[in-house]
Amino acid sequence: MITKALKNRYADAPRAADFTIDQAWETYSTAEHDRWDRLFRRQREVTKGRACQTVLDAMAALELSASGIPDMEKLSDRLEAVTGWRIVPVAALVPDEIFFDHLANRRFPAGAFIRPEAEFDYLQEPDIFHDIFGHVPMLASPVFADFMEAYGKGGRRAMKLGQLHSLARLYWYTVEFGLIREAGGLRIYGAGILSSPNETVFALEDDSPNRIGFDLARIMSTKYIIDDFQQSYFVIDSFEALLDTCYQDFANVYAEMKERPDFEAHEVVPGDEVITRGTLAYFKARQAGR
């Protein structure tokens, strides 16, 4: 959790109606910049060969580096030139309706605070490292940027229909903890994995979690856990396929959800495409035309 002292850093900052604040970049301490640099160097190293190519390319294009906490205004200028998105600083998590409004207008709300040293390896509430290192690279992908805008617009409707929990599961298992088939194997694009050194390795290399082919209704019926590694990861074939599947009116999907049971995070159910090393070998051979 965020400590009381850390909350006070932005506690008195004026907030606009959309909950945005002034990042006040010049007020970060040398220790905070150093903490960003150490987080960045460690995670950049562990994601080599594990993050999807879209993430790696975007980090270079956006000039993300271990050279101090990014100035969101300057970073936004580079991102906006690519996909029209901007990053807006906030003091903490924002209300759902505010969050969806930002996404629907191509603004990503990012926590302006950086975790304290005592929570260097893990914190429960997303900080600037999670939001910038984990989320921002994918916003430089035109296809994924369109998906995030559509998600924001869909969020407002889900609230009116009382189906926010179903849509939240889609976000969790894609934007936060998604995997993609790439280069004959699996790669990471979800921010919750990308910003965690231990889960980066666990998600791809541990034998215990389920890795299941993407299925929209299945995901919207699946619970998730927030205080441990995921017990199931869902795998997309491409970002284009993700957008195509989700670029629709979810009214019929939500109606189906009301008739389906919820699944626990660890469950494998009939109809699941369970992805194993054997299925990945087949996928790689198919890519090669054999």
Rank of each mutant, 00 (worst) to 15 (best):
M148A: 07
K160F: 12
Y171P: 01
A168C: 08
W172D: 11
E176F: 10
V143A: 07
P142R: 02
T174F: 12
A150L: 12
H165L: 02
G155M: 08
K153C: 09
S166P: 01
M148F: 11
Y171N: 08
G162W: 15
L161F: 14
M159P: 06
L167V: 08
G162N: 12
M148T: 10
M159R: 09
R169Q: 10
G178V: 05
S166D: 15
G152C: 03
E176V: 03
M148Q: 12
W172A: 04
M148E: 13
R181Q: 15
R181D: 14
R181K: 15
P142S: 12
S166W: 05
G178D: 14
G152L: 03
R156E: 15
A150R: 03
Y173P: 00
T174H: 05
T174R: 04
D146R: 01
P142L: 09
T174M: 09
S141H: 13
Y173K: 00
K153Y: 10
A150E: 12
G154N: 12
G155N: 05
L164P: 00
A145T: 00
M159T: 08
G152F: 02
L170G: 06
G152H: 02
L164F: 13
D146A: 05
E149L: 02
L161P: 02
T174W: 11
G178Q: 08
E176A: 05
A150N: 09
R169K: 09
S166C: 14
G178F: 15
K153T: 10
Q163A: 11
M148W: 13
E176G: 07
Q163I: 00
K160H: 09
T174Q: 09
L167D: 13
Y173L: 02
G178P: 06
G162H: 11
A158S: 14
P142E: 13
G154P: 02
A150M: 08
G152P: 06
K153R: 12
L161I: 03
K160Y: 11
E176M: 06
I180S: 05
G155H: 08
G178M: 09
F147R: 00
L161V: 07
G155Y: 07
G155A: 10
D146F: 01
A145S: 11
G162I: 07
A158T: 06
W172M: 05
F144D: 04
W172T: 04
L170C: 06
G154M: 07
G152V: 03
D146S: 06
K160D: 15
F147P: 00
F147S: 05
L161D: 15
Y171V: 06
V175F: 15
L164W: 14
L170S: 07
L170E: 12
L161R: 04
F147L: 13
E149S: 01
L164V: 03
Y151Q: 07
P142K: 03
A145F: 06
